[in-house]
Design a protein around this nucleic acid. Structure first.
Lengths: 117, 117
DNA sequence: AGGATACTTAAGCGCATGCTTCACCAACCG
DNA sequence: CGGTTGGTGAAGCATGCGCTTAAGTATCCT
């Protein structure tokens, strides 16, 4: 329920990178260690860890360390927050679109006189 | 990461800025001119125009100029693309979650033996 | 015509991002 | 034990981002 703009910033920022989206996609299939995540990527482990830090900071994933292995998993709550923002926008837009349609249906071919709202 | 600029990259990048999200929210209520969009924002017109360029580049909005006024509106197709990526992730995750639940129901209290898939 | 309005373009500045390398530590394994 | 594996942390570097100022251009109004 928390409508934190800062959180959305971090979320969308995190999703804006193709490498990080790949990681999220991989983690949606199930948990993975850092080096498992790094394996298919053409960059150093260091870079991968930095991407993971961004993802974790954004709330999109979490991880815990056991022995020397850090295991990561998606935090779907966060993903839902991003999805919610978008679908809310879509609903607002669709509502307006419907009003516009109704207006045009009731005032066919009339010269434009401003916003029907 | 010098890959070709994927549309999702540009989209999420565009949405990662609170000012740009505000503009999108405003435009979901209906079209607006550049200075109408700029009015509530504590920055120069120049900065607003640059934000607009990012949004337009990402496909989230479009604009056309008539006389000296540029009118902007949302392009909801693009918004749907972002929404789709997220909801696909969620579905993958939920499917896995269901499988895991089924596995645990059939193998109660067993020691972990790897992925149920 | 002269002035106001609505952008447009370019240059620049400070900070953030995405990577690298190198040095390091801690856990596991034969 | 000593070597390999899995990860951590800091420094550095090139590029990108968000903003500014400043100087245009084109359109509309009187």
């Amino acid at each position: 329920m928390l409508h934190q703009p800062a959180q959305l910033d971090l979320m969308f920022q995190a999703l804006a990178d193709p490498t990080r989206r790949l990681m999220v996609e991989r983690l949606c299939d199930g948990p993975a260690s850092v080096s498992e995540l790094a394996a298919p990527l053409a960059m150093t482990l260091s870079a991968v860890v930095q991407h993971l830090a961004v993802l974790e900071e954004s709330g999109l994933i979490r991880s815990q360390k056991q022995g020397r292995v850090r295991t990561c998993h998606v935090e779907t709550q966060a993903l839902r927050a991003a999805e919610r923002w978008i679908s809310e926008r879509r609903m607002v837009w669709e509502r307006r679109f419907d009003r516009l349609g109704a207006y045009l249906a009731e005032n066919p071919e009339e010269p434009d006189e401003g916003n029907p709202t």
